[in-house]
Amino acid sequence: MEMTITQKILADHAGLEEVHPGQLINAKVDIALGNDITAPISIEKFREAGAKKVFDKDRLVLIPDHFAPNKDIKSAENCKLMREFALEQEITEYYEVGQAGIEHALLPEQGIVVPGDLVVGADSHTCTYGALGAFSTGVGSTDLAAVMITGELWFKVPETIKLVYSGRLNPWVGGKDIVLYTIGKMGVDGALYASMEFTS
């Protein structure tokens, strides 16, 4: 069966020869991401489930970026909770303020996410790593908790919409304009549960 890039990555991570849209699969996760807003909830659920150790201390990435440096007492408590968990679990990819940055710029920059990966993050902009040719998607904090324990997550294989761009860009036009234009044409739910494959 001929497959899209998204199907191929999902199939390989599920240990299957092929996958088709709509199929429910269980797949291994290469990198799981949480931040100072979402990870504290995942950590709470991790503990509630009676888990003791994360699936892989090198593959759970924890970044204080949303309200760090701490904006108020609540954010300070959240950052502290995440920091203590990172220390306890000996998390390799924990970046303290001073080394940290906005997660979706930091992970590619530090070579933490790479082409061909399957990445989930408890943040809706986790889809960013698609720019590297990775399958990457946002999940809820409780989904992240499940990944923290098992290193796996279930997925429904999406259909794919292919977007083909031709022609030279005008002055001062960049990726942001292309995507805003595309959203304007397709609407905010124009690709509901689909994979968007950007090509030229």
Binding site: E2, T4, T160, S166, L169, V173, K176, D177, Y181
Partner: peptide, 24 residues
């Protein structure tokens, strides 16, 4: 590095002329 197969199935294919796009 992965790429789609030539015969992969798509729900839809949309074409855009990027030269017609101004800053948005």
């Amino acid at each position: 590095f992965y790429e789609s197969d030539k015969g992969a199935q798509y729900k839809d294919i949309k074409e855009f002329d990027a030269s017609k796009i101004e800053p948005q």
